[in-house]
Nucleic acid binder design. Structure first.
Length: 339
DNA sequence: AAAACGGGGCC
DNA sequence: GGCCCAGTTTT
C-alpha cells in the first residue's frame, strides 16, 4: 500500500478544504438532524443513515425522536415498541444495539452522550464511522468519519486505486482525512465530504461541472471518474423456496417468532417451512422478497390444523408485534384474497 | 478477511 | 439483474 503522504505531493490541501467547506455551508440540504445540536438525536440519525438513504430515513427520524426524545425515554422503552418504530428500515440489530448503548449512557453517564472517543466508540453499535460522525458533528472534534461517500470522493480526488471493499483500506482514507480536515470546522468538513458524494460526486455520472473541487481533482483532470473507486464485486445471491402456512381459528391467527439471532431476529411471521412437493393446503399465492444477500420465494397456503410452534394471536395483539416487509407482503396478499 | 445483516431506488 | 446506500458485528 502506498503511504498516504504520497497522495498529497502536488496536491493543494488548503484549496480543497476551503472550497469544500464553503460549498457545504452554501449548498447543504436542509435535513431534520441538521436543525439540532442534540448529540443523542445526531447519534440516532447516524445509526439510521447506515446503509440507508436520506429520503428513507427522514420520516423514521422524525417519528423516533418524537416518541423517544431523550436517552431516558429510549432506555426505558419496551424493545418491541422500539422495533415497531424501526419496522421497515432494515438491519434491526442497529436499533437493538442503540437501545443497549443508550441504556449504558443513562446508567453510567447520567444520560449525557460521552464526548470522549475511547468511551463513545466502546458503545454497542458504534463503529469507526459513527464515532467520527458524532464526535465531529455534535462535539466539533477533528475525527475522520469515513463512509462509502468519503471513500468515493477521496479516491477520485486523490487518485487512490486501493480496493475500497478491503477492510484495511478504510485506514488509508482515515489518514487522508487527518491530512485534510478543517480543524476550525470538522463538522462541516466531514459533512461536506459526504454531501458532495451524495449529490455531486455520485457513483454513476458524477456532475463534475458543478463540483467545487474539480480544480484539484485527480480523476477530473484525467477523465478517470468511471474507474474510481476500485471495488471488487461479490458473488450472486442464492434463492430459497419457502411455504408460509396460514391458520385461523375464531378470529385469531397462528404466528411464530423467529429465533433471537440471525436474519430478522425476533420478528413475527406465519410459520415458514422449507418448500416441498406435497400439498400443504389451499394455495393462496406467492411473494418474492429480495434481501441484499439472498432471495426468498414464498408460496402461501391456508391450512386446517394449527402448525407446531405457533401461538394464536388476535388482530389487536398481532398489529403490535414487529414484522418484516416480507410478512407485510403476505398480509397484503391475504387481504386481496378476501376482497 | 469474509460473511451476515434489510430494504429500497436506480439503470 | 447488478450496484449502491452517512456500517457494525460475528465468524
Amino acid at each position: 500500500m502506498i503511504p498516504v503522504q504520497e497522495y498529497f505531493i502536488n496536491f493543494n490541501k488548503r484549496t480543497f478544504t476551503t472550497e469544500l467547506v464553503a460549498w457545504f455551508l452554501r449548498e447543504q440540504r436542509q435535513l431534520p438532524w441538521r436543525e439540532t445540536k442534540n448529540p443523542y438525536h445526531i447519534w440516532i440519525s447516524e445509526i439510521m443513515l447506515q446503509q440507508t438513504r436520506v429520503d428513507t430515513v427522514i420520516p423514521y427520524y422524525n417519528r423516533f425522536t418524537d416518541r423517544f426524545p431523550t436517552p431516558h425515554d429510549l432506555a426505558a422503552a419496551e424493545q418491541s415498541e422500539v422495533l415497531k418504530y424501526w419496522e421497515g428500515l432494515g438491519y434491526y440489530s442497529r436499533v437493538k444495539n442503540l437501545q443497549i448503548a443508550v441504556q449504558e449512557v443513562v446508567e453510567k453517564y447520567g444520560g449525557i452522550v460521552p464526548d470522549e472517543k475511547e468511551i463513545f466508540e466502546s458503545l454497542r453499535g458504534v463503529g469507526p464511522y459513527t464515532t467520527g460522525a458524532v464526535l465531529s458533528i455534535a462535539y466539533g472534534q477533528a475525527e475522520p468519519a469515513v463512509d462509502g461517500n468519503v471513500m468515493r470522493v477521496l479516491s477520485r480526488v486523490l487518485g487512490i486505486y486501493e480496493d475500497i471493499a478491503a477492510p484495511k483500506t478504510r485506514k488509508l482514507f482515515e489518514a487522508a482525512v487527518h491530512e485534510l480536515i478543517d480543524s476550525a470546522d470538522p463538522s462541516s468538513f466531514n459533512q461536506g465530504l459526504m454531501e458532495l458524494g451524495a449529490i455531486v460526486c455520485t457513483p454513476k455520472s458524477p456532475m463534475c461541472g458543478l463540483c467545487p473541487v474539480n480544480d484539484v481533482c485527480f480523476a477530473y483532470e484525467r477523465n478517470a471518474q468511471g474507474e474510481l473507486p476500485v471495488k471488487t464485486k461479490k458473488g450472486k445471491t442464492q434463492t430459497i423456496q419457502y411455504d408460509a402456512l396460514v391458520y385461523e381459528e375464531a378470529g385469531k391467527v397462528a404466528v411464530e417468532q423467529r429465533p433471537d439471532t440471525g436474519l430478522l431476529a425476533g420478528m413475527w411471521q406465519y410459520p415458514l417451512v422449507e418448500s416441498t412437493e406435497d400439498r400443504r393446503g389451499t394455495y393462496v399465492g406467492n411473494i418474492k422478497h429480495i434481501f441484499s444477500h439472498r432471495i426468498w420465494e414464498v408460496s402461501i397456503y391456508r391450512v386446517t390444523t394449527q402448525p407446531e410452534g405457533t401461538v394464536l394471536m388476535d388482530e389487536a395483539t398481532y398489529v403490535k408485534q414487529p414484522i418484516s416487509v416480507a410478512q407485510m407482503k403476505i398480509d397484503r396478499l391475504l387481504k386481496e384474497e378476501t376482497t
